[in-house]
Design a protein around this nucleic acid. Structure first.
Lengths: 156, 156
DNA sequence: TAAGATTGATGGTTCAATCTTC
DNA sequence: GAAGATTGAACCATCAATCTTA
């Protein structure tokens, strides 16, 4: 077998763009339905939940999630107003603040993440057999690595 | 080798969500930069460009791209105002309209799609060797199929 | 001064309600 | 009545400009 043809590449690209769109849509719907929260905001809560001390500086959130710092600022304001997060000054940086996950925020993560795994993650990965899943793990890691090194793909 | 572990699945899921986010971001930036148009609007233009007669009914656009019909209506209004598309009544349906790609619309597609292939698609698929690319083609098709059959993943 | 963060305006998406035509 | 489409409000993301503090 030779290299995949141009038609193959076109089909693969189309599937990739479509999968991206559909997965984003599914995640968005699910988090809105089960947590009345956007998937973008939810990703911030998950990051805080996994952090030691449940707190991360706004700058770190932006870097990790590749969100713009402005987006983080707006998002944290909303999350704070909803009582899911608290802003706290942190000494050390020039003007560093960190977001701290509240008890309500932890509950929110729990409310959303269970259904997300059951209804989206598990069926999706379940569509692949063990071999495909292993292959996909390797491939997804390569794709992320390539996307991360692309100029302009990071924080603006 | 047995089945991938839970930790493996978690890592794969994380990479998948991250790849989705990064690819979406890259496509959005690129279409804005090279065409002053959102990637969502651009996908509509591409669909029209590939259609026979360069015209597709609003309903068909919504079904094909899995966009809400309301989103299509808003989007076509904007695209029409910019002269990239024309609305045209079509007899047959109850109240069917179709969007028709204009010459300017065709130019816009050309302006955007070249750089998109060069700067995003080709480097991304280029990160995979021939075997991985073939595997990925099979896997991406399965993922799309699973996402499409998921209840609630389609048009609201 | 520069890193970190905020603000306001603008544009896109969603949802619910409404309208139009067969 | 129902399929197809539109509208307006609300929310989220982005960009440019501005502010704050070590």
């Amino acid at each position: 077998m030779g290299a995949p043809s141009d038609r193959d590449r076109t089909a693969i690209w189309r599937d990739l763009v479509m999968a991206t769109h559909l997965l984003d849509t599914a995640l968005e719907r699910q988090s809105q339905r089960d947590g009345q929260i956007s998937h973008g905001h939810f990703k911030i809560l998950v990051l805080l939940a996994e952090a030691p001390g449940r707190a991360v500086s706004l700058k770190s959130i932006a870097d990790t999630l590749r969100f713009s710092i402005s987006r983080i600022s707006h998002a944290v304001s909303v999350l704070e107003r909803e009582g899911l997060v608290e802003r706290r000054a942190v000494q050390g940086g020039r003007r560093a603040f960190e977001a701290l996950l509240t008890a309500d925020g932890r509950d929110k993560v729990r409310d959303v993440i269970g259904p997300q795994r059951r209804e989206i993650r598990d069926p999706l990965l379940g569509a692949l057999d063990d071999d495909d899943l292993r292959d996909f793990g390797r491939i997804a890691a390569r794709l992320v690595a390539q996307l991360e090194e692309q100029p302009g793909a990071g924080t603006p």
